[in-house]
């Protein structure tokens, strides 16, 4: 929750994905929570287009794992973020990276990872969730990261009033898949950046990092998902991670941009800086959850450029209700 007089908070990130289709999406989400823990962003909304309850459940497991670092919700205090899920017809199949994590039991036979996604009504309607999350952000203080098909975001953009809302709130959208970015071209009114196909292939996330850097936790859902997705050891592509990293650090020298095609520009990786990018991926994705910040975070933006504090309200004629 954000309040005037507290300074502009760090940027709010809407993360829409098809969690469960590729393990790199789980890595990207842990990378995003790594930024959240450093107070460089606030994860304000997570949704999935993979129509399977396990997809939403896994997102919630990761969110709970980072519970100390997850930003305050756009709604009321002390509530968990609902996870949005596309539900338009038959549910998709489970994938090993989802099933194995959600089925993992401890020595007493209890689930290692708990979640509250047992029925479709435990998930949120994605268009309303994303729209509502955006309504709670300051002007130009939201970023959207898309790691999967654009189905949810196309629905958001089609809601009455959403075009104006997106223009007002969203700085830009970063998509890991150029096809998804092009599908949004002309329909999503903010600037769109898409990660070039070569970027995801040129930097691979090493299996070795999963074994070493995530070992600080005896049970890490993202590490478990990685190990379950394919026989180890293997290295994973990183287009989704690149989308998160570019979204958070667009000015980094690692990136160059193509000429715009409509509202879409492609993001390419400077080959000389691959090692730096990989280091960032590993350090931030494997970072330990940071204990929850005080309710009112200190502003991370330059205070000299922050919006002036709102004028104090007129003295109430009676004691305030709240």
């Amino acid at each position: 929750m954000q309040f005037f007089g507290q300074g502009k908070p760090s940027v709010g990130v809407v993360f829409d994905c098809d969690m469960g289709s590729r393990v790199e999406t789980a890595l990207a989400l842990s990378l995003l929570y790594g930024f959240d823990g450093k107070n460089e962003c606030r994860v304000v909304c997570v949704s999935s287009t993979r129509s399977n309850l396990s997809s939403a459940a896994f997102c919630e497991v990761v969110g709970r794992f980072y519970a100390g670092a997850v930003s305050a919700a756009f709604g009321s205090f002390s509530r968990t973020l609902p996870v949005g899920l596309l539900a338009d017809g038959a549910m998709k199949d489970e994938t090993p990276m989802l099933a194995k994590v959600l089925e993992r039991k401890d020595a007493e036979g209890k689930p290692v990872y708990t979640h509250g996604m047992h029925r479709l009504v435990d998930t949120a309607e994605s268009p309303a969730l994303v729209r509502n999350a955006l309504t709670a952000q300051f002007e130009q203080n939201a970023i959207v990261v898309l790691c999967g098909p654009p189905a949810n975001l196309l629905r958001v953009a089609a809601l009455p009033g959403s075009q104006e809302l997106i223009k007002e709130k969203v700085r830009y959208l970063v998509a890991s898949d150029p096809k998804a970015a092009m599908a949004l071209n002309g329909k999503w009114p903010s600037p769109i950046y898409s990660i070039s196909p070569s970027t995801g292939n040129s930097v691979l996330f090493p299996a070795e990092a999963i074994e070493k850097e995530f070992a600080w936790s005896p049970a890490h859902p993202v590490a478990d998902a990685y190990k379950a997705a394919k026989p180890m050891p293997y290295d994973a592509e990183t287009s989704d991670m690149a989308a998160v990293l570019y979204a958070m650090r667009p000015a980094d020298k690692a990136w160059t941009l193509s000429e715009p095609q409509g509202s879409v520009r492609q993001v390419m990786l400077n080959p000389d800086l691959k090692a730096d990018v990989l280091k960032s991926y590993i350090e931030l994705a494997s970072a330990k959850p940071v204990p929850r910040q005080p309710r009112f975070r200190r502003p991370v933006v330059d205070p000299t450029k922050a919006a002036p504090p709102a004028k104090p309200a007129a003295a109430p004629s009676k004691p305030e209700l709240r």
Binding site: Q2, T135, L321
Partner: peptide
């Protein structure tokens, strides 16, 4: 849900 009853940057005053 009534999202427009939430603060949405307007601070206190939920009632």
């Amino acid at each position: 849900t009534q999202n427009n009853g939430r603060a949405l940057l307007d601070g206190a005053g939920d009632h």
